[in-house]
């Protein structure tokens, strides 16, 4: 049975209308975007000089400039905020401080503090990001609370934001965020920890003894990257204990090994040699131990490396031959 003329005619008409509508939508979106670009160019022209002046103005002139930018209203005011937010990650020191003051004076801080309690996860995450950029003591409470948010995305952004805000009081909360139960990727929470000033080694020594493998892993990684020699013994103990643990975590052993290598902790040499040749250890753990051995200074390490080369697998040998 052939398709009837009526069906074909209706289908053609419907499709032509749909095509025309789609075409119109494409044209309208493009026109709107081009208009937006032109408007942004005009706004850029209007505020560019004043924003650049933030970098060089001093005292009263700076205060006046900040006040001018803070009191700009309407679409231009919104453009000031967007421009400053785009620029802030690129600048440091006094200029960054001036930009943050302008944003805070425009009410961005209070708006973000409100928005972090929004119903939508995306709004909460965006607010957490802004709070991290704005920094200061008052953002730490809401951001640490956001580490317990029901949305993983918000928790993840809050952890990163705490690193950007870089306040020492966030340390303990971020170590807790390393826990496997938090769902926050270890690399995110640990990276945030690396940015914090005035770190207390005791927090990490405790972390290395924690029951949670995520906390042990993060603490081990951070201790090595921050070259926290006060925690070297605890790090070594953690690695030894992990090897003997039922359900030992490869990533914890590898992180401990790498950090011991970074710290050049000589008492760990023989244990690292044992791991690098152990058939019980996974390939990644053996390689981490090999890298640690490679980084170890001194004659003892050199001798051990020579011995290990004879017994280790090809991957470890590749690493050690370099040393």
């Amino acid at each position: 049975m052939l398709v009837s003329w009526d069906v074909l005619a209706v289908a053609v008409v419907v499709l032509v209308v749909a095509c025309v509508l789609a075409l119109t939508a494409v044209v309208l979106i493009k026109a709107a975007r081009h208009a937006g670009e032109r408007r942004r160019a005009v706004h850029d022209e209007a505020i560019r000089t004043r924003i650049m002046m933030l970098a060089v103005a001093e005292d009263e002139a700076l205060a006046k400039l900040e006040s001018e930018l803070a009191s700009t209203t309407g679409a231009l005011g919104e453009h000031v905020e967007n421009t400053l937010l785009r620029m802030i990650p690129e600048v440091r020191g006094d200029v960054r401080g001036a930009m943050i003051r302008v944003l805070a004076a425009r009410g961005l801080l209070s708006r973000s503090l409100d928005r972090i309690h929004s119903r939508g996860a995306i709004q909460r995450a965006a607010a957490a990001e802004l709070l991290g950029i704005l920094g200061g003591r008052e953002v730490i409470g809401p951001l640490t609370a956001a580490l317990q948010d029901k949305s993983l995305e918000v928790r993840l952004v809050a952890a990163r934001a705490l690193g950007v805000a870089a306040r020492p009081e966030a340390g303990g909360h971020l170590v807790d965020a390393l826990s496997l139960t938090s769902g926050i990727p270890h690399s995110v929470a640990a990276t945030a920890l690396l940015n914090l000033p005035e770190q207390d080694p005791a927090v990490y020594i405790e972390g290395l003894r924690d029951r949670d493998a995520g906390i042990r892993y993060g603490s081990a990684a951070v201790v090595g990257l921050l070259l926290m020699s006060e925690a070297a013994d605890a790090l070594f103990d953690c690695m030894v204990a992990e090897r003997g643990r039922e359900g030992a975590s490869d990533v914890v052993i590898a992180a401990c090994a790498r950090s011991l290598g970074r710290l050049g902790h000589k008492p760990a040499i023989s244990e690292l040699a044992d791991i690098s040749c152990s058939s019980a250890a996974s390939s990644s753990v053996r390689q981490a131990a090999g890298e640690a051995l490679k980084a170890m200074p001194g004659a003892e390490a050199r001798d051990v490396r020579r011995r290990v080369i004879e017994h280790a697998d090809a991957d470890v040998r590749r690493i050690l031959v370099d040393a």
Binding site: G163, H186, S187, A190, A192
Partner: peptide
């Protein structure tokens, strides 16, 4: 968070 990832040794 691209900027943070770009700078992270982890």
């Amino acid at each position: 968070g691209a900027r943070v990832t770009a700078a992270s040794p982890l």
